[in-house]
């Protein structure tokens, strides 16, 4: 009888489940990592003022931050806090899978304003370069020297099933050993970042129920 060869990702040693090892939330004027509150500022209602205080509070020392659009600011701050406050080893092959509802709407509006002025109209290169949501992936990759798979998806609502399926497939197909995934939403002063790191090790089970609960 012919021997059935199982795909490598079904071999016994690979059967350990993918779990959430760390997660970070930035919402409602607060920053927390693994459920522990690290910073609260409910005074700054304006998103850009708030995220600047977070940047300074966590001493992120990345001057390019100031040039970024709101989505990149939230993404780079959330990713940096998650990676630097959990003792996570920076794996250059760590994949990035981010998602949100409003894409990079704030910088899109700003860009539209600059090109819709009548005479003397100039598109600002500094704005234009941020008019794609996946630039946020590039900024994280540049800062942490990642050379990995990355994707940014737009959904009407937080879509845990999709993130789980995509994250599992990256790990189980051997594309990456670790995935930084989540939701980074900014639309004017409404913001919510929920990033989590997944790998095959002990942690919180990667389920829709858990992601909804942690977000």
């Amino acid at each position: 009888m012919e021997e059935v060869i199982q795909p490598f990702y079904l071999e016994k040693e690979n059967r350990m489940k993918n779990n959430i090892i760390h997660y970070c939330n930035i919402k409602d004027g607060s920053v927390s990592v693994n459920g522990k509150s690290l910073y609260v500022n409910t005074v700054e209602k304006d998103f850009l003022s708030f995220i600047k205080t977070v940047y300074k509070q966590f001493d992120l020392a990345y001057p390019k931050f100031y040039k970024m659009d709101p989505l990149c600011k939230l993404s780079i701050v959330a990713a940096s806090i998650l990676l630097e406050n959990t003792g996570s080893e920076i794996d250059p092959n760590m994949a990035l899978v981010l998602s949100n509802k409003s894409s990079c709407i704030d910088i899109d509006r700003k860009h539209q304003e600059t090109i819709s002025q009548e005479a003397d109209s100039y598109a600002s290169p500094a704005n234009f370069v941020y008019t794609l949501p996946n630039i946020a992936l590039g900024e994280i990759s540049i800062k942490y020297k990642l050379q990995s798979e990355n994707s940014f998806f737009i959904f009407e609502y937080f879509n845990p099933k999709f993130l789980i399926d995509y994250t599992n497939s990256l790990i189980d197909l051997g594309k990456s050993n670790r995935v930084l995934s989540g939701w980074v939403e900014v639309n004017e002063n409404n913001y919510n970042a929920f990033l989590f790191i997944v790998e095959k090790s002990d942690g919180i089970e990667l389920t829709q129920k858990n992601l909804i609960k942690l977000k």
Binding site: K52, P63, Y66, S124
Partner: peptide
Amino acid sequence: IEALNLED
């Protein structure tokens, strides 16, 4: 400073 967002 304004065009390049050199805020600080």
